Simulated scan of single mutants.
Amino acid sequence: MSVPAHSAPRPAGSPSVVDLNADLGEGVGDDAAMVRLVSSANVACGFHAGTPLLLRRTCEQAVAAGVRIGAQVSYPDREGFGRRFMEVEPDDLIADVLFQIGALSAIARSVGGTVDYVKPHGALYNAIVHHRGQAQAVVSAVAEAGLPLMSLPGSVAIDLARTAGIPVLTEAFADRAYTPAGTLVPRTEAGAELTDSAAVARRVVGLVTSGHITAVDGSQIAVRADSICLHGDTPGAVGHARAVREALAGAGISVRAR
């Protein structure tokens, strides 16, 4: 995935609160452990992964943990886990996104929760960074649902949402390597994923306190983010999350949805 980093510096002063999010309800990883370590749960909506029962249980866990629920919408691609780009007509994509938000909203309400934001998954997430047509369709659906959009700083979708007056949540990635140009190192390349929990924790504290991430060549790039993503399905994910929480606490930074 190639994504631009936001060039604007963070405001002066070190934030005392940060939001941590993770993708849950996909039937992979240790959701029960991860939901106790994050403040926002991007819950799959069934199109790329998850069953109604699994999504209900995931929402129950999030409500019990006091964790904010987001709708993790995707292409209708269960076979490919939502990781394959699809050419979708704008009206179809709007309807698909609204269908997923509506389904998860009903499930969340059934266990005493609400859906509070929307975060696309996989290939759809990647597409709306640059694909204006699909970005506009997603933004239109999110606007009709009356919810904030979580996406990458500098993406077409974020720009369109801001222009439309839709609240946005920008994010950075704790466990992915960045290039000097501010893009993510492709997963097919060596070193694309950080595997050492201590290194992941140091990176998150550094990002929160300075607004910068160290690229693979050692240079510093500015990344302004409202939330930090910890992938729940990567090896060692729970260990990463625990290390991040401990490091943030040591730095006097609380984890809370913002």
Results as ranks from 00 to 15, higher is better:
A135L: 02
T170M: 10
Q134F: 12
G70A: 01
Y117V: 00
L152C: 04
A65K: 00
A108R: 04
G102F: 03
M150Q: 15
T58K: 00
S140N: 14
R78H: 07
H121P: 03
V156S: 04
Y178S: 13
M86S: 07
A157D: 05
I166L: 14
D159Q: 13
A164M: 04
D159E: 15
V111N: 11
A137K: 15
P180G: 11
P148C: 07
G146R: 14
L104Q: 10
A145C: 14
L152A: 09
E87N: 14
E79T: 09
Q100A: 10
P153Y: 07
A71Q: 08
T163M: 08
P76M: 03
V73P: 09
G122Q: 12
Q134K: 15
I101K: 10
V111M: 12
A123D: 02
V138E: 02
E144I: 09
L147E: 06
E87S: 14
D159S: 12
S155T: 06
V67W: 01
A174E: 14
V142E: 00
S151W: 09
P167W: 00
V73N: 11
S110Y: 14
L93R: 12
L98F: 10
D91F: 02
I128D: 00
S140Q: 14
I158S: 07
L147P: 10
I69P: 02
G66M: 01
L93P: 11
A127Y: 00
Q100G: 12
G133C: 05
Y117P: 04
P167M: 00
I158T: 06
A143Q: 13
I166C: 09
S110G: 06
R84H: 14
M150R: 10
V138I: 08
L104N: 06
L104Y: 12
L104E: 06
R78F: 08
P153T: 04
S74T: 02
V156K: 00
